[in-house]
């Protein structure tokens, strides 16, 4: 393989991976008020993307933090989780800064299927708590 081919391939790969959207998504299946969480997360300038899912007695949130805040991303997630727990005392809140949780929460929101959702949420939480 010549060097030109390698460079071409890298360019294509970088172009394809360049545009992952950073957005704030909120899906509410409960009668809790989601706007409080929305306000809190949008106000936080370290966060650049959120997927939040209210379901039954669960609040599952995946966040994407800005590049230079990544060193403290677990602390940021813990801090936001604490704040949200105060806002929603009836829900069991789970916040993670792991990109896996963000993408999976996005998938659950897009799928829009409430059957078996609770099981999936439990699965994700146990996955995020794995240490190694």
């Amino acid at each position: 393989m010549t060097i030109r081919q390698v460079i071409m391939m890298l360019c294509v790969l970088l172009l394809l991976t360049g545009c992952i959207p950073n957005e704030f998504k909120f899906e509410n299946h409960t009668d809790e008020d989601a706007s409080k969480a929305e306000e809190l997360l949008k106000k936080d300038n370290r966060v650049k993307g959120v997927a939040a899912l209210f379901h039954d007695d669960h609040l599952l949130i995946g966040i994407r933090v800005k590049t230079f805040s990544r060193f403290n991303k677990r602390e940021i997630a813990r801090e936001i989780e604490k704040k949200l727990k105060e806002e929603y005392p009836d829900l069991s809140v789970f916040v993670s800064a792991d990109s896996k949780i963000l993408t999976e929460t996005n998938k659950l929101i897009l799928k829009d299927d409430e059957k078996g959702l609770k099981k999936k949420i439990h699965q994700l939480i146990s996955l995020a708590e794995e240490e190694t």
């Binding site: 792991d98 990109s99 896996k100 949780i101 993408t103 996955l127 995020a128 794995e130 240490e131 190694t132």
Partner: peptide, 13 residues
């Protein structure tokens, strides 16, 4: 991370 049940932390292994 996309195709298996690995998180950002566990995918490194």
């Amino acid at each position: 991370m996309t195709f298996f049940n690995f998180t950002e932390r566990t995918a490194s292994n």
